[in-house]
């Protein structure tokens, strides 16, 4: 059946980037204020789901040729790696390090290894959500 979803498709092309930008904002905002990897990940996967709704699965997997299960694994590796890095310095597992750096444009920026951990969470959340949706949506 051919449906007329031109409005949805056109709108998606614009809104998609807004959502992803917002999710990145939320991800970094999680550093000191509400937000973080989990919410950011959910927003990003929301964007991808919107893409799935507007187009079909084949198109989306052509645009984003990602193996989501591998994405979960990469995310887990990030999270574990950040935690296990503490083992090298003989401090308790998951101990984080942070410091302030003066970057050219951004100015005084606080860098924190917890961000890497959160990146892992982000990837895991996107991976898990998309795996589930793909599994259910696969045989329509």
């Amino acid at each position: 059946m051919k449906t007329n979803d031109i409005i949805l498709q056109t709108a998606t092309k614009v809104v998609l980037f807004l959502i992803i930008l917002f999710s990145i904002h939320i991800f970094f905002a999680g550093h000191y204020t509400p937000g973080g990897g989990f919410v950011g990940g959910l927003l990003t996967s929301g964007a991808i789901v919107l893409l799935l709704l507007a187009f079909d699965m084949k198109t989306v997997s052509k645009i984003l040729p990602v193996n989501y299960i591998h994405m979960i694994a990469v995310g887990l590796l990030f999270a574990i790696g950040t935690g296990a890095g503490a083992l090298l310095f003989n401090v308790p597992f998951l101990t984080h390090a942070f410091g302030h750096v003066d970057l050219p444009i951004l100015g005084d920026t606080s860098l924190h290894t917890a961000t890497l951990f959160d990146l892992g969470v982000f990837l895991v959340v996107v991976g898990v959500t998309m795996t589930i949706i793909q599994t259910i949506g696969e045989d329509e």
Partner: peptide, 20 residues
């Protein structure tokens, strides 16, 4: 609560796939 929500999110998702 955040931890418990994440966990119940995962379990519910798995349960839904399994039910399907």
């Amino acid at each position: 609560i955040l931890t418990a929500i994440v966990i119940s999110f995962g379990v519910t998702a798995f349960f839904l796939v399994l039910a399907y």
